[in-house]
Design a protein around this nucleic acid. Structure first.
Length: 580
RNA sequence: UGGGGUGUAGCCAAGUGGUAAGGCACAAGGUUUUGAUCCUUGCAUGCGUUGGUUCGAAUCCAGCCACCCCAGCCA
C-alpha cells in the first residue's frame, strides 16, 4: 500500500475545517509532545460490517494522520472470538480500501499480541497489581456495588503472588472451566468510576479464535488489550468514541503500572531512538443519522431475519450496502468532513448525506434517459421505419465526457407521469393539445389521446415540429422538457427505487419498542418494465448514470444479467416541484 | 440520589475576553432543452437558564435546568 490517494475530491487534500482533535494535534506537534509524530489507528472489532458511522472514525483517523505526515494502522480488535469471524475481517479490509485509505504497513491484530499481553499480565501479578479471582460472574456483579454504592473486595484479592502466578498459568493451561477464574486488576472497589473497581483483565473461553486457532483458552478483555496494543504500535493519538471516556483512567492506569522499558522493548519502534511516550486516548461523539439504525446488533438482526437482503442490501447504512446503492468514496468522505468532529452528541440530518452524493454524482455521472413507467407516443409526421441518430452530450457542462448516440424514431416511450389529461396548476409537461420539448430532440404537440374502454390512456398521437431540433422556437416559449426512449431501440431494464428504511427519525429511540414496527413498507419499489436508452447498457458504459429528470442510478453488479440489466437508484434529483 | 460528559438557528458546526464563520434545510429572485445543476439574496441584537466579574462575556466565575454514558468475564 502506498500513502497516496488518487481521489481528486479527497477532502483531506484541501483546507480542512477546524475541530478539537485537529487543534489538539496541532498543539502536540508544536510542543513536540510525541517527538513530532502523529500515529493513529482504526481498531474495528470484526464482528459485523462497517457502517457509515465507522466511516466517520475512519476518515478522522486516516485523515488526521495524512494531514500531518503521520501514519494510521488498521488493527482488528479481536479479543472476543465468540463474536468474530474471518468473513468480517475480509469485508472490513475491503471497505477501507474501497474508501481509498491506505493503512500503514501490514494489517494488525490485537490477537497477534497475545503473547506480550500474557507476559504483561504476569508482570502485573508480580507487581501485586493483579490477582486471580474465583468469583463467578454473578458473584462478581454482586461485589461490584452499584452506581451509588461502593463495591466489596473479592475474597481472593490478597492471594499471594506465587499462588496468583500458578493459577494464572493453570488458567492458560486449560485446567479450569469458563467462569471459574478470572484475572483482575487490583485497583479500588470503592472508586466512583465503576471501571476502576478491579476490572477483569482475562477470562477463560474454551473456543477457537479466527486468527490464533486453538492456541489460547484465555482471552484478554478490551480495556486490558487496547491500551497495550496502542503502546506496542507506538500510537500517539488513540481516538475513540464518547462511551469510552470513563475507561480512560483504566487505560492510563494499566500503561503506567507496566514497566515502560519492557513496553518500549516490544514496540514497533524499539530499534529506533525516539522518546518513548505513552499513547493518549481522546474521545469524540459518534455519528448518528436520522431515519437510520446504526447499532451493530440491530443491523445483524435485520440481516439474519431477512428484513433486508444481506449486509450489502442497498438500503443498509453499511459501506457495502451504500457502495452497491451507488454511493462513491468521495461522497462519503465529503459527508464525513462536512459533519465535523465534536464532543456533543448530535443527530445529523439525512439531507446532508443526500447533498454529498448528489454533489459528487452531478459532476461525475454521465447522463442518459430512462423511462420508468412507459406510455406509447406515436409521431404521426415521422415515417415508419425511419430512424434518426441524435448525438447528445454525455454531460451538460462537461464536454470532455463526450457524446452518445441516441436513436429517435416514430414510436417513442415517455413516462406516464409526464402526461396529464387534467393538469394541476403549474404543470409544465404534456397535456392534450399542448407542446413540450423532447429532451435533446424536437418540440412536439399532442394531437390525440387514445384511451381504452376504462378511460386509461393507451397512446398519445403527436406531431413534431421539424424545425426545432437544436433550435429554440422563435417567439414561442415551451416550458416543459420531458425524457423519452425510442420504443424499437430502447433496452428493457429493471429499476429498484430505494427509499429510507424507516419512517421515524430515530428508529432506535426510546419511544420505539421494536424497529420492525417503524419500517418503511416502500423502502424498495421494483419496476420491471423500464426502458433505458442503448448507450447506458452498451459495451464500456459507465457504472453509474443520471437518468435525466429521475435520479442517479448504479448498475447492480450482482443481479444484472445480459438479458435484464438492473439499476439501483442511488438518490433522486432534488425536486422543488412535487412538494408544492 | 455516585462518577463522567454535552448544551451556539429546523439539523450539523466554527468560535478560547473585542461585539456570532461555514455547510445542510428552507424561502424569494435570475439562468437553463433535466421542475436538475449553477448564480444572487434572505435566514441567531442571539450562544440551555439565572446571577456575577469586566469598559466589554458564547468565551471567566457561581447556581440552576435539560439531555447522554457507566453497575458484561462485550467492544
Amino acid at each position: 500500500m502506498t500513502d497516496s490517494d488518487s481521489d481528486s475530491k479527497d477532502p483531506s487534500a484541501g483546507s480542512a475545517a477546524s475541530n478539537f482533535i485537529r487543534n489538539m494535534i496541532a498543539q502536540d506537534l508544536a510542543s513536540q509532545k510525541h517527538g513530532g509524530r502523529v500515529h493513529t489507528r482504526f481498531p474495528p472489532e470484526p464482528n459485523g460490517y462497517l457502517h457509515i458511522g465507522h466511516a466517520k472514525s475512519i476518515c478522522l483517523n486516516f485523515g488526521v494522520a495524512k494531514e500531518n505526515g503521520g501514519h494510521c494502522n488498521l488493527r482488528f480488535d479481536d479479543t472476543n472470538p465468540a463474536k468474530e469471524s474471518q468473513e468480517f475481517v475480509d469485508a472490513i479490509k475491503d471497505n477501507i480500501a474501497w474508501l481509498g485509505f491506505n493503512w500503514h504497513g501490514e494489517v494488525r491484530y490485537s490477537s497477534s499480541y497475545f503473547d506480550y499481553l500474557y507476559d504483561f499480565a504476569v508482570q502485573l501479578i508480580e507487581k501485586s497489581q493483579a490477582f486471580v479471582c474465583s468469583l463467578s460472574p454473578e458473584e462478581s456483579r454482586e461485589h461490584r456495588g452499584s452506581l451509588t454504592e461502593p463495591g466489596r473486595n473479592s475474597p481472593d484479592r490478597d492471594r499471594s503472588v506465587a499462588e496468583n502466578l500458578q493459577l494464572f498459568a493453570r488458567m492458560r493451561g486449560g485446567e479450569f472451566a469458563e467462569g471459574e477464574y478470572s484475572l483482575r486488576a487490583k485497583i479500588d472497589m470503592g472508586s466512583p468510576n465503576i471501571n476502576m473497581r478491579d476490572p477483569v483483565l482475562y477470562r477463560i473461553r474454551h473456543i477457537d479464535h479466527h486468527q490464533t486457532g486453538d492456541k489460547w483458552c484465555i482471552y484478554p478483555t478490551y480495556d486490558y488489550t487496547h491500551c497495550i496494543s496502542d503502546a506496542i504500535e507506538n500510537i500517539t493519538h488513540s481516538l475513540c468514541t464518547l462511551e469510552f471516556e470513563d475507561h480512560r483512567p483504566l487505560y492510563d492506569w494499566i500503561l503506567h503500572k507496566l514497566d515502560s522499558g519492557s513496553l518500549r522493548s516490544v514496540s514497533d519502534l524499539s530499534d529506533s531512538n525516539f522518546d518513548y511516550v505513552l499513547p493518549e486516548q481522546t474521545e469524540f461523539a459518534k455519528l448518528k443519522l436520522n431515519f437510520t439504525m446504526m447499532g451493530k446488533r440491530n443491523l445483524k438482526e435485520m440481516v439474519e431475519s431477512g428484513v433486508v437482503n444481506g449486509w450489502d442490501d442497498p438500503r443498509m447504512p453499511t459501506l457495502a450496502g451504500m457502495r452497491r446503492r451507488g454511493f462513491t468514496p468521495a461522497s462519503i468522505k465529503n459527508f464525513c468532513e462536512s459533519v465535523g468532529v465534536s464532543r456533543s452528541e448530535s443527530v445529523v440530518d439525512m439531507s446532508m448525506l443526500e447533498h454529498a452524493i448528489r454533489e459528487d454524482l452531478d459532476s461525475s455521472a454521465p447522463r442518459a434517459m430512462c423511462v420508468l413507467n412507459p406510455l406509447k407516443l406515436v409521431l404521426s409526421n415521422v415515417d415508419e421505419g425511419q430512424a434518426e441518430h441524435l448525438e447528445l452530450a454525455r454531460h451538460p457542462k462537461d464536454e470532455s465526457m463526450g457524446r452518445r448516440t441516441v436513436p429517435f424514431s416514430r414510436e417513442l416511450l415517455i413516462d406516464r407521469s409526464d402526461f396529464e389529461a387534467e393538469p394541476p396548476p403549474g404543470f409544465k409537461r404534456l397535456i392534450p393539445g399542448g407542446e413540450v420539448r423532447l429532451r435533446g430532440a424536437y418540440i412536439i404537440r399532442c394531437d390525440e389521446v387514445v384511451e381504452d374502454s376504462k378511460g386509461v390512456v393507451q397512446q398519445l398521437n403527436c406531431t413534431i415540429d421539424k424545425d426545432t431540433l437544436g433550435k429554440r422556437p422563435q417567439g414561442r416559449k415551451v416550458k416543459g422538457v420531458i425524457h423519452w426512449v425510442s420504443a424499437a431501440h430502447g433496452v428493457k431494464a429493471k429499476l429498484r427505487l430505494y427509499d429510507r428504511l424507516f419512517n421515524v427519525q430515530i428508529p432506535e429511540g426510546k419511544d420505539v419498542q421494536d424497529y420492525r414496527q417503524v419500517l418503511n413498507p416502500d423502502s424498495l419499489i421494483e419496476l420491471n418494465e423500464c426502458m433505458v436508452e442503448p448507450s447506458a447498457v452498451a459495451e464500456g458504459a459507465s457504472p453509474n448514470y443520471q437518468f435525466e429528470r429521475e435520479g442517479y442510478f448504479r448498475l447492480d453488479a450482482i443481479d444484472s444479467t445480459d438479458e435484464l440489466p438492473v439499476f439501483n437508484r442511488t438518490i433522486t434529483l432534488r425536486d422543488s416541484w412535487s412538494s408544492k
